[in-house]
């Protein structure tokens, strides 16, 4: 079947993915910092004058959304580091030379990497939620999830957004072919440097809030209500467009690339 060569490459990448110490180290460090972060919030939290919701009183959905809206968002940083690492370790070793003669290998290797990014995004969200629940139980002495339906919608939306973010980083890495440069660009993206510059420029010209449709702005937008159909469509259309655009650029680049 025409899909088989891609499945074969994915199996190979997946084996490297799960047998890779770096992946576990990243997830463990992420989890430790996540729990430590909750400890710190618990230590220094003070009631706000406006009577805003205390972090320690949030349910899981609210807590996740507030974590993801932080600048910088650690979830995005870990995803970026993993993406650059996983692609560049193959590129720098030259291992692709061993399968490049396979039919449609260039296309399939990019598609397989995109799927691996999806798996990693899934993994980091699982670790994210487990760490939050553990940390909140220990330090906030509560770990309510809130409305399960909302929680699931939020998770699906954010996972798809983060997956599309990782595809954007993959595309940048494929083109840069350099670890440092890719990481620097990724961090600039996570800090939303481009989003803020564009936002300022936009506010000078028009009242339309088009920059809210930028990927990082969508991820960090606290006001998104996943129960609201409009917001839900906003999230999915941003994610899908980013995925498509950067996948196509990455594929197109890979097909033409002169390999070392």
């Amino acid at each position: 079947m025409w899909l088989q060569p891609m499945v074969n490459l994915f199996k190979m990448d997946f084996r490297r993915f799960i047998s890779n110490k770096m992946m576990y180290v990243l997830l463990m460090v992420f989890s430790a910092f996540q729990i430590f972060g909750i400890f710190m919030i618990n230590q220094y939290e003070e009631p706000t004058e406006h009577g805003g919701l205390l972090t320690s009183a949030m349910n899981e959905s609210q807590f996740i959304q507030s974590m993801l809206a932080q600048t910088p968002s650690w979830v995005m940083i870990y995803i970026a580091v993993f993406t650059v690492y996983f692609y560049m370790s193959e590129y720098n070793s030259g291992f692709y030379k061993n399968y490049i003669t396979l039919s449609r290998a260039r296309i399939n290797s990019v598609l397989s990497k995109i799927l691996i990014q999806g798996v990693f995004t899934l993994f980091i969200f699982v670790v994210f939620i487990l760490s939050d629940l553990i940390g909140r139980t220990i330090f906030f002495e509560q770990a309510t999830i809130g409305d399960i339906g909302y929680f699931v919608k939020l998770l699906i939306g954010q996972i798809v957004l983060h997956w599309s973010f990782s595809i954007m980083i993959l595309c940048i890495t494929i083109i840069m072919r350099n670890i440092i440069a890719s990481i620097v660009i990724s961090i600039a993206l996570v800090l939303n440097v481009f989003g803020m510059v564009l936002g300022v420029l936009e506010s000078l010209i028009t009242d339309l809030n088009l920059t809210s449709y930028l990927l990082v702005n969508t991820i960090t937008n606290r006001t998104i209500d996943f129960n609201n159909l409009g917001d839900f469509i906003h999230v999915f259309s941003v994610a899908i467009i980013v995925m498509l655009v950067f996948s196509l650029i990455a594929l197109n680049y890979k097909i033409r690339e002169d390999l070392r």
Binding site: S93, G94, F95, N98, T101, L102, S103, R106, I255
Partner: peptide, 19 residues
């Protein structure tokens, strides 16, 4: 690009690509 006939080739070019 990506012609299936390439599959009938084995390559060792410059350094072996190894992890």
């Amino acid at each position: 690009a990506n012609h299936p006939y390439y599959e009938r080739m084995g390559l060792l070019i410059e350094n072996a690509g190894l992890y």
